[in-house]
Amino acid sequence: MTGDPERLVSSASGLDRAVLASAGSDAPSHRARGAAAAAVGLAGLAAGTSVLAASTSASAGAASVASKSSLFAVALKVGAVVLAVGAASYVAVDAAVPAKPVVPAVVAASAHASPARESSPPPVASGPAVPEVVAPEPSATLATPAAVAAPLRRAAAAPATVAALEPQPSSPQPRSKSFAGELAEIDAARRLLSSGDAKGALSAARAYATDHPGGTFAPEAQVLRVDALTALGDVAGARAEATSYLSRYPESPAAPRLRRLLEKE
């Protein structure tokens, strides 16, 4: 924009300038990048098939629950994987894992080899960074057990997160208004679903909606309800949730999957 003022670091002098310029060396460590890649399941991508196999077997239990519909098998698989990631991370938090995450060599190497890593990221919002069209059906997002090796928080000062890990139903207040709290709840629901406890998942996903009207993960909670109901064989219930989801989030990338589901039966 032509009307932008000059950056302070250019116009300032003395202490101001030194202080502003001191941010110039900020950069994440390779270790941090590797740990984060592992935590989101990217570390295993370079390993290709073996990771896919691991992912498949990890979610086999969930998939078998939904043997009626391959779409749901896929959905559950994704859920299970996400769960694996989330659970691993938060379990790590819960256990207050000390010190540094141990990044497996494979992870570090993989992150190191990321194609875009060497170039600095483009300026803020310089345009869509991901041009490809979204996959109509989510295929399994790859996760690896390496996520376990990446504790999320070493810092003690994360009260919101800690509180979130143990939702307190007895509390008179809504469980946790915090983002981390919502995250933990939705994680718990996913965990239940992928462990085959569709009933528990359903009630957790319903509790989420009750506790957080308009919550950050409201769409995800509703998709979880669809999947849980399907797993329970409640086709009518699943269809009702799917219909409601589509009316609320018609443009959501998850919508096509649910639409196809509704058309199917």
Binding site: P28, H112, V134, A135, L142
Partner: peptide, 30 residues
Amino acid sequence: MHAVTGEWQNEGAASDDGVRLRRAFDAHFD
């Protein structure tokens, strides 16, 4: 160490979501 073209292709076959996530990761992590 940085010859990853083949890996990228594999990822594409394995998972479009994986590719999308990876691109976002590479582009925005720093």
